[in-house]
Structures are given as structure tokens and as C-alpha cells.
Write a protein that binds this DNA or RNA. Structure first.
Lengths: 281, 281
DNA sequence: TGCCGTTTAGAATAAATGTTCCCGCATTCC
DNA sequence: GGAATGCGGGAACATTTATTCTAAACGGCA
């Protein structure tokens, strides 16, 4: 009575099937779908009762879920989840070796991705080693104490500036993204006072506008938090606190992997500081 | 009566224990030891009866084997075999979430940074494992063939959109960043044709505007390249090609570490493709 | 508000699984 | 050569586990 044709036999197919039918499922079954996709290990190894408890559903709901997907019962579906563990097992070592050997059989796109992933991991580890906690805390101090926060980043640094400005705003900090929109940059800049903070983000080749702005700020006694790279950065002597990141670069395209990691860390650390302060009062 | 001290809890320890005691075991138990070491998958997933049959022994012999190694019974030993599957096949989602949950006790800035660096490395490895080369190449195809490229990303996704738009522009692709500046979104959107491409970036909680725009594009036959997370994303059914990234998230602040890595990889891979094409002519 | 189809919870059930136990067998030691 | 010891086989047992079934809750619709 059931059509057995579309019963998934591989984990990839099962994942696709769940994803596809997820929208048309009843609430409880959707809940299971969500749990199954994010906890495939549990689905593969635990018992119905255990999974039901962890997912917050009844055991019978899991059987209904399995049957909805065309399986005979839960056991049959679990078998597919288990193939994910066994099938990927031998591949794991091979993949790492393939990577180490130089990624010979990879298509262009994924070779580039592999490269940037490797570079990204390196950059993150480098960041961990090189960035001093003092600088980081100093940066958070600046962000915490500033009246208004002005964020500037051009070209490749603009996404970072945009992120910081968005996130700082969400933390309730008064933040202005200096994007020069409508030629208003000069006006925006004139408003910066010495109780404010300029966050300047710039990487090689350093944007003139950003460096100029830093110089202006430094002359007017405005604190500057620099996010930059290298030891020769023109931002360095102008900024009170500088956070240095070395991200990978290929053909002029700088990866922002580590920089973004630093940015989100700054934000969350600042958020915690603000929480604590609020609680302390 | 039994000393419970040396019961192996990791697969490595179990493997060592079996190897070491193999010589002093009775013939039948040695037979089991041999089977266990060469078929750890079976040991982890099959039932006692199944394993017994495949190894050519009695089920009870397996229990004896387990007890000889200091376990309470077969079930307990099997648990160790199962850790091998879950440990070697890390569920990065779980790890990322674990890191996310464990962020509660973070105090100072450097601990937050440590946390995000760890989470970032995990996310990158997850990206490496989960993103299929086909999808990646498909995405590059779309970017290569599109007449105009429209990029949309709101809130936390905006930095990614900004980066892509900037970098695509530098590659000479005609790119429009849909930022809704000056309430021009509707006009910008109306211009999109079916030879163009919409790049939609959205993560939980998915921005309504972005999803709506995808739906509109899909209805009008405009190709959509989605960059999103999870398998439940509303972008998924609307996009021709979807690239899925799982980045860490703490207190509502999503790290863009892995997402940025993917973005720059896309760009550089596209750049290579364009170079090759140009050289070929 | 009242009806009808669907969905869900939870107990009841049947199947399967792990474990125990005892007896036969071989080997070893007296 | 005979008793003792350890090992292994396999059926019986108890427990766990998946599954079924029914009544209740829910949600949509008139």
C-alpha cells in the first residue's frame, strides 16, 4: 500500500527527505525532524525511549515519524542513521591524508575552499597566540567607556565595520557607521568629540581616508581603536589600542575569517562586561 | 571482587587492553578479540546474536569476553565501541553548540576570544566536511553566468553581502547590493531578470525581507544562490543552489568566521574560473 | 457552538535482546 | 587412571525495546 520507491537508503537522501518534507509535517513531527537533523548521532545510537526523552516527545511519535518517511518502523530508519557513522568512518582518515598530500583530486572550487579553510584555521591559531589579552581588554574598555562609537572601514574592511556597527547597536551602544554615504563623511566626522571613540579598520593596502581620519582623530584627542594587520600599519602609531590580525590573502582578496572572529569576540566580551556592570548596580 | 579501576573507557584504551591480554586469553576469547579488533563497527552497532554468528562463536562467549575485560556486561563494552564512532565522526553542530552553551562562565575578553577561536576552527572543519563540491561548483557556475548579480543580506548577514558585493565588483561582475537604501529596494528588485542572479544570505532567525525576496525571485524564474544555515532554512526550497554554513552563536551574536571563509573562497574560485576562461579565448 | 478529520499521548503488547545458568567436554594435575 | 579445574555450548530467563492501539485533545470549518 505504501510506495517503497522513495524510501531513503543513504543518510544524504534521508537528510534531504527530512528537509524537504519538513514544512508539511505536523508540529510534533517537525520537532522530531529538527532534533534528528541536529543530533544524528543520537538518532543512530540511542534507543527510542532515550531519543524521545531528549527530544521531548513520546516514543510513539518517533515511530510515526519513521513511517511518515516511508520506513517500516523506527529500526529501519535508524539503520540509515547508522550508515552515516560507518560510511564516513574510513573516509575520515583518507580525507585528512588527501588534504595533507595536496588535494589532488579536488575540483577547483573545493580546492580553493580547502585552501582558505586551512588558512583560516592557521590565522585563528595565530590570532590566539599573538593577540595580547591586555590589548583585548583595553579595546573593550574603550568600547565600554565611549559616549558615541564611530566605526570606519573601507573596501574590504567595510564588512567588518558594518558588522561591528550593527552589533554595537544591538548592545545598546550609540554607534555611527562612517560610510560616507551621500558625501556626509566630513559632517559626520566633525561631530566626533574626545569622549567618543573611533574604531578604524584597515588592512594593506591601507585606505587613505581611514588613515587620514585616524590622524585627525588623534590630533583632536579622540581615542582610536585600530583593527589592522602587520607591524608597519600606519594605524598603529595613531591608535590608543591596536588589535592586529593576520588573515590569509590570495590574489588580492583578503580572507576576513580571523578578523570576523575577533570582531564577534569583542562584541560578546563587551556584552558580558555591560551585563555584569548592570547586574552590579 | 573485580577491580574496576582498569576498565577501559576510551576506544584507544580498550584496543590496548585487548591487544595486551590477547595472548593470555582462552582460544575462543582470543577469537573474539581478533574479530573485535578487525570489526569494531560491528562491535559497536550489531547485536550480540549477530556478532556471535559472524564471529562464529556463541553469544554467551561475548558476554564472557566483556566480563573478562572488566565490564559489567556486553552492553557496557559496546558503549566504548560506540564512542569510537561518535568521537571520530564528530558532530560539529553539537560541538559548536557545546561551545555556545559553555560560554556562560566566560569572564574576560581573552577567554571569549579563545572560545570563538575554538568555535571558529570547528565551524571551518564542519564546513570542510559538509559542503559538497557539487554545490560549490554550482554556485560558481551561477555567479559566472549571471548577467547582473544582486546581493541581499540583512542585519548580521549584511556584512557578508557587503563583502560579496565589493569583491564581485572587483572581479568585474556587475553587482548590485540590495541594501534598501533610501527605500529603493522595490525599484531595485523589479529590475531583476531571469538572466540575472540573486544571492541571498540569511541565518536564523531568517529575515522576512530576504525570504520574501527569494520567493519573489523564484516565482519569476530568477536563479537564486542561497547562503544560509541549517537544513530547515526557508531559503533552501527557494534557491537553485544553497551553501550551508554552521557558525557559532553566543547570546544572539553569530560569528561570521566560517561564512566569511566561504565567501572569500567563492570569490577566489570565481576569479580563477574567469581567468581560465579569458586565457582560453 | 458543534461537528469531523487529524494529531497526539500514553498505556498495553509483542518482539528482540542481553544475560544467566547448568551441563558436557577437554585438559591438567595428583 | 581418576579427580579436579577451567572452558564452551546452548537453552531458559528476565529485561529491555520497538511497536500497536485506543481514547483524548486539537484545530479547522460551517
Amino acid at each position: 500500500m505504501e510506495q517503497e520507491t522513495d524510501v531513503p537508503t543513504s543518510y544524504a537522501a534521508l537528510q534531504a527527505a527530512i528537509t524537504q518534507r519538513q514544512a508539511s509535517l505536523s508540529p510534533r513531527l517537525r520537532q522530531i525532524a529538527e532534533y534528528a537533523l541536529s543530533n544524528p548521532n543520537d538518532m543512530a545510537l540511542e534507543t527510542v525511549a532515550q531519543i524521545a526523552e531528549r527530544a521531548g516527545v513520546q516514543p510513539s511519535a518517533l515511530i510515526r515519524f519513521s513511517k511518515t518517511l516511508g520506513f517500516e518502523g523506527f529500526t529501519e530508519m535508524q539503520r540509515v542513521f547508522r550508515t552515516r557513522l560507518t560510511d564516513n568512518m574510513p573516509n575520515y582518515k583518507e580525507r585528512i591524508r588527501a588534504l595533507t598530500d595536496g588535494a589532488a583530486g579536488l575540483t577547483d572550487g573545493s580546492r580553493v575552499l580547502e585552501h582558505f579553510i586551512g588558512a583560516g584555521i592557521n590565522a585563528l591559531e595565530h590570532l590566539r597566540q599573538e593577540l595580547s589579552p591586555e590589548d583585548l581588554d583595553g579595546a573593550i574598555d574603550l568600547l565600554e567607556e565611549a559616549d558615541h562609537i564611530y566605526v570606519m572601514g573601507q573596501r574590504r574592511s567595510f564588512p567588518v565595520a558594518a558588522y561591528l556597527s550593527y552589533a554595537l547597536g544591538r548592545l545598546g551602544r550609540r554607534t555611527i557607521l562612517l560610510d560616507g554615504m551621500g558625501g556626509m563623511l566630513r559632517q559626520q566626522v566633525q561631530a566626533i568629540g574626545d569622549r567618543d571613540l573611533l574604531v578604524a579598520i584597515s588592512f594593506k593596502p591601507y585606505s587613505e581616508e581611514t588613515v587620514d581620519l585616524c590622524r585627525l582623530a588623534a590630533e583632536n584627542g579622540v581615542p582610536v581603536l585600530g583593527i589592522t594587520d602587520g607591524t608597519l600599519s600606519p594605524i598603529l602609531p595613531l591608535a590608543g589600542v591596536t588589535l592586529s590580525v593576520e588573515d590569509a590573502q590570495v590574489k588580492g582578496f583578503r580572507s576576513l575569517t580571523a578578523t570576523m572572529c575577533l570582531a564577534v569576540s569583542l562584541i560578546v566580551a563587551l556584552g558580558q562586561r555591560l551585563d555584569k556592570e548592570k547586574a552590579g548596580r
